[in-house]
């Protein structure tokens, strides 16, 4: 009997060790590309691909070049473009998403079911199938040239946000209706309930919506590329980094690409890690929905 328990314990221990080793190996695989790009961003050798895996010497010049060499690929300007666009998109999208989600969750009106079905059907079309048409529409109203490109991008990113109401609706659904009713008894209008009861209770989902809509312009690549076309002045960070790896730039910009990737990734990674619990909460809420 005693022997049996020791062998059981030994077996358990080997399983434990195996699992931790496995996790360590997996963690290394997952972290490897990230450490690699950080390493490349400090590499002193010029050119793109080198014959040795580890850099021979390290430098900070790549970062300097990224922020000072504005003649061909103007990274600081791209950064500012993206920041301006992101701030506006963030404000408009958040308002849209919260308004639509609240209507879907709390208000009952004739078009509600229809709206939800239409939103589902629209979600099945390839997102950028209509991109060419969007470009023509923007061109027709004169938003495709010059500084209006920024306005165009802001509109494109935020206009469709009324379709992304599922997660926030799932969250609003979990707020007890009794609170609303108590407010109605006190003579509050629906708008007052929305702004004074629901919104103050929805901090997690507001943070989540603000962050996701703020991140959108930083992460999107397709729309920016189609709408900016050759307007290099209004490129966002995503297209800029992509351009650095194109044939004509890769020789000069390869290590700067790595530096740019690191610069962009650090703030976004911090935001993402901060927001992941809301992400999880929102999703489990929506699935239960």
């Amino acid at each position: 009997m005693k022997k049996q328990t020791t062998s059981y314990k030994a077996k358990k221990r080997t399983v434990n060790i195996l699992i931790h080793v496995l996790l360590a190996v997996l963690a290394v695989i997952w972290i490897f590309p990230i450490t690699w790009v950080v390493m490349i961003s400090f590499r002193a050798e010029k050119g793109s691909y080198t014959s040795s895996f580890l850099p021979k010497s390290f430098t900070l010049d790549n970062y300097k070049k990224l922020f000072t060499d504005t003649s061909i690929l103007n990274f600081p300007k791209m950064f500012m473009n993206t920041l301006i666009i992101a701030i506006f998109v963030c404000i408009i999208s958040t308002l849209f998403v919260l308004a639509v989600s609240y209507c879907m969750s709390r208000l009952r009106f004739k078009m509600r079911k229809k709206y939800m079905n239409i939103a589902m059907i629209l979600g099945l079309f390839p997102g950028f199938m209509s991109m060419i048409a969007v470009y023509y529409i923007l061109k027709a109203v004169g938003l495709s040239e010059g500084s209006m490109v920024r306005v165009a991008l802001i509109m494109v990113y935020s206009a469709g946000s009324g379709l992304g109401f599922y997660i926030a609706k799932g969250f609003f659904d979990t707020i007890p209706k009794a609170l609303d009713e108590a407010a109605f008894l006190d003579g509050a209008t629906k708008f007052q309930v929305f702004t004074k009861v629901t919104i103050p209770l929805s901090k997690p989902i507001i943070v989540y919506t603000v962050l996701t809509s703020f991140l959108g312009p930083w992460l999107d690549f397709i729309f920016a590329k189609v709408i900016c076309r050759a307007n290099a002045d209004y490129y966002t960070v995503a297209i800029g980094l992509w351009r650095m790896l194109e044939k004509e730039y890769i020789d000069n910009w390869y290590t700067c690409f790595a530096a740019g990737a690191v610069c962009i990734s650090i703030p976004i990674a911090i935001l993402f890690i901060y927001m992941q619990r809301y992400y999880v909460e929102g999703l489990t809420g929506a699935v239960k929905g």
């Binding site: 308004a99 009106f109 060419i132 048409a133 529409i137 509109m155 946000s161 009324g162 379709l163």
Partner: peptide, 28 residues
């Protein structure tokens, strides 16, 4: 702001969807 709150809240988002999603989609 009360009984018809959905109209005031939904108008702009729906306008955005019609102009930037449905109109281009029909066009394509």
């Amino acid at each position: 702001f009360d009984g018809n709150l959905h109209r005031s809240l939904m108008t702009l988002p729906i306008l955005g969807i019609v102009i930037f999603t449905i109109l281009p989609l029909v066009f394509m």
